[in-house]
Design a binder for these strands. Structure first.
Lengths: 209, 209
DNA sequence: CTACAAACTTAAGTCAATTCATATTTTGGC
DNA sequence: GCCAAAATATGAATTGACTTAAGTTTGTAG
């Protein structure tokens, strides 16, 4: 029985993550030292590295927690999507954005994304990529659901559509967090415009007729 | 006349950038020390910081050089786009991808993007964002051109379409560079599929009719 | 030609993330 | 209960990006 050890280990991991969450949110990523996180969690700096590969991984672990929450909440929207298909999609994507900003500032998002990008093969970098894929799949599920309702062309591949729509929201979100002064309203406006365009498509009527 | 000084300055800047390019390409970003770049350029480490704000900026400066090259070359494609509109767009976006990989490895791209993300307000971070915008605008130009030909629905906003299409290629490229093992053929395949979907749109015929 | 100020270069520091050798704790067998 | 092995914790040492104070070079004016 390795009960005690595992419980202790899980506990410490939680403590460290909680300490990191508190300090990252209070002081930002750059201004939070590993030493400070260790002190807050009442361990030595080296111990932090027994649980997380780097300061960046610590942040990504936080983001991943949030991401799982988003995904779970997203299921609700898929279960009861608005009548209008454009609104249904926009609502889900908007929800992703709103939820992302509850716990994490733009600065934290920038650093989380940057770390996930530069360390894509680390366990946490992989976790981030997987989360993105899951969310894209969730959008795909919504599209499939709207297709069954006959609100989306039967010829459309739901998975591909999910990918494209998620890429739209993800790209816009990246631009949004990169610009400290950009208001969320502007992001939403672009999102609506682009979702509408994806619904309408580019192909001209002549070619289709 | 401040000729000599300015010439020397420009020369040194070029030397440092060339040294960085050589070493980044040979050893990768992480394994290249600023000291090594300084030595290669025959200056002191501190001098590098008189010309570039950080190691990351140095890399972004390289990317930006490449980016301008891509944009210039992209104009040619816009001037003589293929007959088929889907092919025209795919050709331009494919070209961006192919060109991006001529000079820079996946690892360098990862780090360039990561640095641009985490330092978006630095001069070079801004430069990177501006480059992205210019490329998205260029895609928009192509869309406008195809619209004039009557190959794209007149109701489509060319700028928005350019944004969406560039987001598609950019997102796919990010996934591609994040996965060291992913072949370029797979990226192209996804690109083609997604561009087709954007052309076709999601809206069902009933709603349109 | 000389002196001065501005701009530039330098290399010795600072700082913080990460590593690592050592010490401590836990586990499973006696 | 006690010991050897394995796992974990520690904090001092390392590393490398970045800063800075001091020295050097360049352009200008007398």
């Amino acid at each position: 029985m390795t009960g005690l050890r595992e419980r202790q280990k899980a506990g410490r991991r939680r403590d460290i993550l909680a300490a990191a969450a508190k300090l990252f949110r209070r002081d930002g990523f750059a201004d939070t030292a590993i030493e400070a996180i260790a002190a807050e969690a009442e361990v030595a700096a080296g111990t932090v590295y027994n649980y997380f590969e780097s300061k960046g991984d610590l942040l990504i672990a936080l983001v991943a927690l949030d991401g799982e929450e988003v995904r779970a909440a997203g299921k609700e929207i898929i279960a009861h999507p608005p009548r209008d298909p454009v609104q249904a999609v926009t609502k889900l994507l908007s929800f992703y954005i709103d939820h992302s900003l509850i716990h994490l500032s733009k600065e934290l998002w920038r650093n989380a994304m940057a770390n996930a990008l530069s360390q894509p093969s680390s366990p946490f970098g992989l976790g981030y990529a997987e989360l993105d894929r899951k969310l894209a799949d969730q959008v795909g599920e919504l599209v499939a659901c709207l297709k069954e309702r006959g609100q989306i062309d039967a010829a459309v591949d739901a998975k591909t559509a999910g990918d494209v729509l998620f890429e739209v929201v993800n790209s816009l979100f990246m631009v949004f967090v990169a610009r400290e002064e950009m208001p969320i309203a502007l992001l939403k406006k672009s999102l609506t415009r682009q979702v509408r365009l994806v619904f309408a498509g580019l192909g001209n009527p002549q070619a289709e007729g």
